Computed example of a mutant assay.
Amino acid sequence: MKRDKPKAVSMPFSLVPLLLLIVPLAEIGAFIVIGREIGVFWTLAMVFVTAVVGSILLRIQGFGLLNRIRKETEAGRVPGRELVHGVMILIAGVLLLTPGFITDAIGFLLFVPAIRDAGWALIKNRITIVTNARFSDGGFDRRTKSEESPTIDLDNTDFTRDPDPNSPWNKD
């Protein structure tokens, strides 16, 4: 039975240079329009405040997310959703620290859990989560290394804590 390889989802390469050109031009236009309306000082103040608020949100939501990842891992589940949320929060933080109103708007949207859930719903069927499980005849074998090795049960006569005076390792 032939298995189809998962298809990689990627952005067409021709869009990347276009985005690298369009986003800064749109940000410059937004700075000009907003600067005319509220003044240069208030425009710069807004950029500074959004960077501070973004760093605070990044810290709060980042630590909360790390706790959720830890809980999922301790429960024996793969924290796929939480990891994707973590990437989105990281992107949101970078966008908020980048000066600009358009990047700030996108960054604030990525801090909203419902928006991140919508993003997760779009990509969850397109990604493959690989764990350290091994494949055996009956399917995936999720035993750990400690379960693979045989347990040796020793009696009190088989094991003592006193050093053996005839041992070559004893250098007394």
Rank of each mutant, 00 (worst) to 15 (best):
G93H: 05
N166D: 15
T98E: 01
K145P: 00
I152T: 04
L25M: 12
M46D: 12
A133D: 07
F48R: 06
K2S: 09
L90D: 01
L15V: 07
I91P: 06
V33G: 06
W169D: 13
F135A: 05
F140Y: 11
S167Q: 10
T144S: 14
I102Q: 03
N67D: 02
I69L: 08
R77P: 03
G93L: 08
R126A: 12
T43D: 09
P99V: 08
P79G: 12
P113I: 08
A121G: 07
A118P: 10
D137P: 03
T160N: 03
L44C: 13
L65H: 13
P163H: 07
V16I: 12
G35K: 01
E148D: 13
S10C: 00
V40H: 02
V47L: 15
A30L: 15
N125R: 13
T160F: 02
D155Y: 03
D137E: 12
M11L: 15
V112Y: 00
W120E: 03
F140W: 14
D164V: 04
R36T: 15
V53A: 06
G62S: 08
K2P: 06
E74N: 09
I123E: 02
I152F: 10
L57W: 15
R3S: 10
T131L: 11
M88V: 11
A114L: 11
A75C: 07
K2T: 10
K71S: 15
V78K: 01
